[in-house]
Every structure is written in structure tokens, then in C-alpha cells.
């Protein structure tokens, strides 16, 4: 009998999430979202930015090529699986 464990966990999770959400609403966590966007930048820009290099750009392009191949591979896997498993 797994229902009691599941239900207890799901209900407690739901209730806790709801309490936190209500707290966040009342506490103004969803206001001033414009300022929230800048919070990491407000305290963290204490060093010079790293210099852009040609190798870095090549690395970025290599990653894009890899990602494109990955997309192709994922699509091929999906088609193969649907043909075989469907």
C-alpha cells in the first residue's frame, strides 16, 4: 500500500509550497522585479572582464557545431524509435 506515503508527501509538499508562495506574495518577492534582474551585478563586478580571444570564438563555434549535430542525432533517434516502437 503506497498511497498513504505518496499522498502524505504530495499533500505536505503542496501545503509547504503554498505557504511559501503566500509568504513570498505578502513579502513583496514578486514586486520590484526590474531591480531583481541586477542583483548579481550589484555586488559582483570587482574584476576586469576576461579578454575575448580568437581561440575562444573558435571554441564557441565548435560548440555550436556540436550542438547542431546533437539536435540532428536527437531527431534521428526519435524518428527511429517511433518507427520501431510505434
Amino acid at each position: 500500500m503506497y498511497y498513504p506515503y505518496f499522498l502524505a508527501y504530495m499533500i505536505s509538499g503542496f501545503v509547504i509550497s503554498l505557504i511559501v508562495l503566500i509568504w513570498a506574495l505578502r513579502n513583496g518577492q514578486f514586486k520590484d522585479q526590474q531591480r531583481a534582474r541586477f542583483l548579481p551585478l550589484e555586488e559582483g563586478l570587482e574584476t576586469e572582464p576576461a579578454k575575448v580571444s580568437k581561440i575562444g570564438k573558435i571554441e564557441a563555434y565548435a560548440l555550436i557545431v556540436l550542438a547542431s549535430l546533437g539536435l540532428f542525432g536527437t531527431a534521428a533517434t526519435l524518428i527511429f524509435s517511433l518507427l520501431k516502437g510505434g
Binding site: 572582464p49 576576461a50 579578454k51 575575448v52 580571444s53 575562444g56 570564438k57 571554441e59 564557441a60 560548440l63 550542438a67 546533437g70
Partner: peptide, 18 residues
């Protein structure tokens, strides 16, 4: 992307997002 790839942390984490 150039700036991200110039930084070792940015490079690792951006790849992580992919």
C-alpha cells in the same frame, strides 16, 4: 558568446546549459 568563452567559468556553465 565571445565574452562567455573568454571566461573559464562561463565556458563550463554555458556548455552545461546546452
Amino acid at each position: 558568446l565571445g565574452v562567455i568563452y573568454a571566461d573559464i567559468a562561463g565556458k563550463f556553465i554555458f556548455t552545461g546549459t546546452i
